[in-house]
Amino acid sequence: MSKLILGAYAQRNTDDHPPAYAPGYKTSVLRSPKNALISIAQTLTEVTSPRFSDEHFGSKDNDLILNYAKDGLPIGERIVVHGYVRDQFGRPVKNALLEVWQANASGRYRHPNDQFIGAMDPNFGGCGRMMTDANGYFVFRTIKPGPYPWRNRINEWRPAHIHFSLLADGWAQRLISQFYFEGDPLIDSCPIIKTIPTEDQRRALIAKEDKSNFLEADSRCYRFDITLRGRRATYFENELT
């Protein structure tokens, strides 16, 4: 059997994503292109991506409970989040860089531009990162973020959420998104979630309570899987180069 030759990544299905111009999310009005995106045939530029090695990472990089703790533990609900990163054809995505950031239990971010009255937590930073393993599996530990108010309409509130970013095998897979928590009533009224056109895709951003993986007298657990674009194999002409 000869070596598997990979072709291009499957086309991004734009109907599965928010449009750039989404007037209910007001900031998008002046930050969205007027012209249509120009679709190009992929080259080596689009199918390659940087590789990171374990030496880039510290031992607490995926432990948001401890990685900023100074004189004690942060306040809030202890949770573990885990899941698998796969491509659209179901293959595990190995050694992908997954980065996460979030507010603390009050819904307050450790950021110079956040002036919300919700209290800061001196023992919580709010960022972490990890690599997926050979099965595409990732796990991190954190404090469940609180919802927070923001100025879109004046009484807008984000549901509890964790931001995440993925750098995997191809530049075409580059993805930033946010996930939410099962049962949060704010999910149904969030204008940022509502930029996503279909109910199935909105549901794909909700982490599920994973009861059998709760740790007794310690932490609850959420399961969240991520899907990236996948590459087709080439059995006839290879036009990539």
């Binding site: 991004r12 299905n13 599965d16 994503h17 928010p18 999310y25 900031t27 998008s28 796969r86 491509d87 659209q88 054809f89 179901g90 931001h163 970013s165 993805l175 930033i176 998104s177 946010q178 940022i192 979630i193 930029t195 996503i196 199935d200 895709q201 909105r202 794909a204 951003l205 991520i226 899907t227 990236l228 674009r229």
Partner: peptide
């Protein structure tokens, strides 16, 4: 076939 996880703003 799975759908790509939808994007959200950073």
């Amino acid at each position: 076939e799975l759908s790509e996880t939808p994007s959200q703003t950073g």
